[in-house]
Simulated assay, not measured.
Amino acid sequence: MALLVNAGLVSADIKPYISTQADYNTECKTCPRSLCPNQLYYAGEEAFNVTCWTRGTKIMGDTLWLKSEAGCYVTQYDVLEYPGDYTTNLDYCGPESEEQDLTVEDATLKYKTECRICPEISCDTVAYLKENTDVELTCWYPEGQVIIDDPYWLKTTNNCYVAQKNLYSKPDITYLDPCGPIPFLEIELHHNANGTSDVNKRAPAPVPATLGTQYLINVTVGEEYAYCRSCPKESCSSKKRYEFNQEIWLQCLTLSNDTWWSETTDFCYVKDSDLWQSPSGDYYNNPLCEKFEGGAPDPDEDGRRR
């Protein structure tokens, strides 16, 4: 009889659910892994119930994830601190809950690309990827920041998003899952400690830019002719000649001999002084080309770091 009483006391500790709320914007995923698509998301201070616990991608040092009453998973780090212990107060979701089932498609970047934590240019940069970098796409999102004329962004196994416009060709999204709804996220609150591929990783900028980066930016030629050169120097050979008021697209900025140059989508360099707009001025904050090289260039060859 004593054994039956003890068993009853143990089961009484298990709750059918625990009420909580999101501490920050948080994604509720189809599995407890960073690369899994979102089923929905909870905004900061939004209340919901969690019904069981499981293990998944380590977020800010924490591998515990919680299953929402909606049937999707949120990292424990993103909800208010619980005074008890989820692992003793809730049932374990089961070993199948820890599985990751992804759709994956290979692609190659056509341009220098900032891979962002969410599909907007105001979102933090996770990785700087060079042109011709091979990436693995996991899902697609149709309502991101419009780049030139395309609002589609794709999530990569770097756990960040690239604009479809930056790929050599559009992927066949019939083979990929939709990413689901995506909230605004910040790296400092949602650092992914493991669980994603290290392939093609680049170090993010150590300090956020004062102005939101704009990429790819659209400018027009302000001189009768603007020569696009093979390197950011007047002595370099001309690869193209742009005409007055011609529309061109810029990838990044570099400083050479106290002169700002911009690399265009034709992979040549045009002087900023030949343009109507000033990419290095107050209206834009285009990324530095050196960011895509994994380090600072030789100042004797490519100019000084900004």
Rank of each mutant, 00 (worst) to 15 (best):
P206T: 07
D91W: 14
N89H: 13
T213A: 06
V221A: 02
P204W: 07
T138W: 14
A193N: 15
T210L: 02
T103E: 03
E136N: 11
D150Y: 04
Y152K: 12
K170N: 07
G94V: 06
P142I: 02
A209T: 00
L176Y: 06
I148V: 14
I173N: 05
S122N: 00
A205P: 02
R202C: 04
K170C: 07
G222E: 06
R202F: 02
N192A: 12
V146A: 06
P206E: 06
V207S: 10
Y215I: 04
L167K: 01
T157F: 13
T88V: 09
E98C: 00
C179M: 03
P151Q: 12
T113R: 08
D101V: 12
S197Y: 11
A107N: 08
F184Y: 09
T157L: 10
T213C: 01
N166C: 00
V207T: 14
G222V: 02
C123G: 13
E131L: 08
E99P: 03
E99R: 15
K201D: 09
P171F: 03
P142W: 06
A205I: 05
E188L: 07
L189T: 04
T138K: 11
N158P: 03
V221G: 04
A226M: 11
R116Q: 12
P142C: 07
Y161W: 00
E96S: 15
Y175R: 07
K155S: 10
R116S: 11
A163C: 03
K112S: 03
L185Y: 02
N89C: 05
Y128L: 10
D91N: 15
L109N: 14
T213Y: 12
T108S: 01
Q145A: 03
C179Y: 11
Y111G: 09
E98A: 09
P181R: 14
R229H: 15
E188R: 08
Y128F: 15
N200M: 10
D177L: 09
Y215T: 05
P151M: 05
E136M: 10
D177R: 10
N159K: 13
Y111D: 09
T133A: 10
H191P: 03
P206I: 06
D101M: 13
N218G: 10
D91T: 15
N89E: 15
V207P: 02
Y128W: 15
L176V: 05
S197T: 12
Q100V: 02
Y86L: 00
N89V: 05
D101Q: 13
N158W: 04
